[in-house]
């Protein structure tokens, strides 16, 4: 599904990713952990196509296609979804209108029939129920005045509606209360299947008890320095990154 080879990337001339290799087969969920500033968000932005993140070397293949050659909206249509670490606010843009516009943009690009307002509301309400989001969040402007946890849940609502093939979750768990963590995990797990894979960025082992990953990787200074099974997350929780970074250096 996703194959990253020898990825080097700079932001504002600063080298952040330094030869990153990572393969996520279809149907698998991988977790990335790593110290602050190691390049986790940068990786997710490079994959989603954010302007200003320049790839200087390496390749990213998504399915059969060269992901790096695509515009951000084309990647979204192809099935890439980034849940932002810090979702932006859109004053003046109603959440429901935004969600329907996004859903129909993706459907149109795929040649699928558009969803009318009534069908949309039904769909959205069903997903919101799972996430325990009150209906009035549809009427409010996107993320404006939402609490930290509400913003993260809104990201998950977008993911659930767009049903991507590859979800990049950048610290979706931070800021969530214990119950919300469970609901968000349920939403991710509900998408699990042979055509869905995910890259879960987190600092906490707790999320990975709900969303059990197939593989766990440690990112340090822009490279994967260690990979293992779910047990690696437990080890890190106990020992921290120091030992791994020392070994990699």
């Amino acid at each position: 599904m996703l194959k990253i080879e020898n990825l080097h990337a700079t932001v504002d001339g600063k080298q952040i990713l330094n030869g990153l290799n990572l393969t996520i087969p279809s149907g698998e969920i991988h977790a990335i952990m790593g110290p602050n500033g190691s390049g986790k968000s940068t990786l997710s932005y490079v994959l989603a196509g954010r302007e200003g993140y320049e790839v200087t070397e390496g390749s990213v293949t998504f399915g059969e296609v060269d992901l790096l050659a695509m515009e951000p909206e084309e990647r979204a249509v192809a099935g890439v979804f980034l849940a932002f670490q810090a979702p932006v606010e859109l004053p003046g843009v109603g959440n429901a209108n935004f969600l329907r516009t996004a859903l129909n943009a993706v459907r149109r690009a795929k040649g699928e029939a558009e969803i009318d307002a009534i069908q949309f509301l039904k769909l959205a309400r069903a997903r919101m129920k799972v996430l325990n989001m009150p209906d009035d969040m549809l009427k409010r402007p996107v993320n404006v005045g939402f609490s930290g946890g509400e913003k993260k849940r809104n990201e998950m609502l977008q993911m659930a509606l767009l049903s991507p093939k590859l979800a990049l979750l950048d610290e979706t768990d931070s800021g969530l209360d214990i119950d919300a963590l469970k609901l968000v995990s349920d939403t991710v797990n509900s998408l699990r299947g042979p055509d869905f894979s995910a890259l879960v960025i987190t600092h906490y082992q707790r999320l990975l008890t709900h969303i059990v990953p197939d593989r766990v990787h440690v990112l340090s200074a822009g490279r994967i320095v260690k990979s293992g099974g779910p047990e690696l997350a437990h080890e890190l929780e106990a020992s921290g990154y120091g030992a791994i970074q020392d070994a990699a250096a």
Binding site: R50, E73, V93, L162
Partner: peptide, 19 residues
């Protein structure tokens, strides 16, 4: 953010101007 949700660039701009 809007483009990452599949909304084409020109439409994304129009949405933000409307807002």
């Amino acid at each position: 953010f809007l483009r990452s949700r599949g909304i084409p660039l020109e439409q994304a701009k129009a949405i933000l101007v409307e807002a």
